[in-house]
Structures are given as structure tokens and as C-alpha cells.
Amino acid sequence: MTDSTEFTVNLFKSYIMNHLFSSVPCPLEAIYKKIKEEIIKQEGRIQELENLEEAFFIVHEEITGKRPVPSRA
């Protein structure tokens, strides 16, 4: 795991923790889409998109115990 991937994993985890006690749940896929939109707004961020994808897989596996089927848009 690269430093950038680790940063993105921590970003996912902080989103999760911040919404843990919220009255409105925030699914992991929604967090993924929000971070992806922020990355896409910036040019030349291909590596960050790859890190986001890997971080999503890592966090999903930590939470559920299995890697997700890549079917997100």
C-alpha cells in the first residue's frame, strides 16, 4: 500500500467514523462517489483515482471480510 493509498484509506475511515453516530447513514459507496467527484474536479489525478479504487477495496474488505465485486460507476 502506497502512502497515497493509505491516506485515502484513512479518509474513508474518517468519513465512516464521522457518520457513525449520525441520524443519516452514509454507505461506503456514497463515500466513494463523493471522493471520486472531488478527484475528478482536478486535472491529472489518474494515480489518485487508482488509489481511491484500492482504498475502497481495502476498507470494504476490512468491514465485510470480503472484497467487493467492482460494479460502481
Rank of each mutant, 00 (worst) to 15 (best):
G65Q: 03
R72P: 05
G44L: 04
K33F: 15
E29T: 10
K33E: 15
K36E: 11
M1S: 14
E62Q: 14
L49S: 01
K33R: 14
E62R: 08
E54Y: 07
S4G: 15
P68D: 03
H60T: 07
I31K: 03
K41G: 03
K66H: 13
E6Y: 14
I35K: 04
I46E: 15
V59L: 03
F7N: 13
S4C: 10
Y15C: 02
H60C: 06
S4F: 14
S4I: 14
E29R: 07
P68R: 01
L20C: 09
F21K: 13
H19R: 05
K36C: 06
E62S: 10
E61L: 05
M1W: 10
T64Q: 08
R72M: 13
A55S: 03
N51S: 14
R67P: 02
N18M: 10
A30D: 14
V59S: 06
F56C: 00
H19G: 05
D3R: 13
E61R: 11
S23P: 05
Q42F: 07
I39W: 00
N18D: 11
I39R: 01
T2D: 11
L28F: 01
E29A: 08
F7A: 14
T8Q: 09
M17H: 13
E37Y: 07
P70I: 01
F12R: 00
I46A: 14
A55T: 05
I39K: 02
R45T: 08
A30I: 04
N51R: 07
E6F: 12
S71V: 15
I63Y: 02
G65N: 00
F56H: 03
F7S: 12
P25K: 07
K36R: 13
T5F: 04
H19P: 01
E48D: 10
P27R: 03
H60M: 06
I46R: 15
N10V: 00
S14I: 10
V24F: 06
H19I: 00
G65K: 01
P25N: 04
T5Q: 11
P70D: 00
I31N: 03
Y32A: 00
V69W: 11
R72T: 13
R67L: 04
E29F: 04
P70L: 03
T8E: 07
Y32D: 02
F21A: 12
S22V: 02
S4H: 13
P25V: 04
N51F: 11
H19K: 04
V24D: 12
D3F: 13
R72H: 12
Y15G: 00
R45H: 09
K34M: 10
P25W: 02
L52S: 03
L20G: 15
K66V: 12
E50L: 11
E62G: 05
I46W: 10
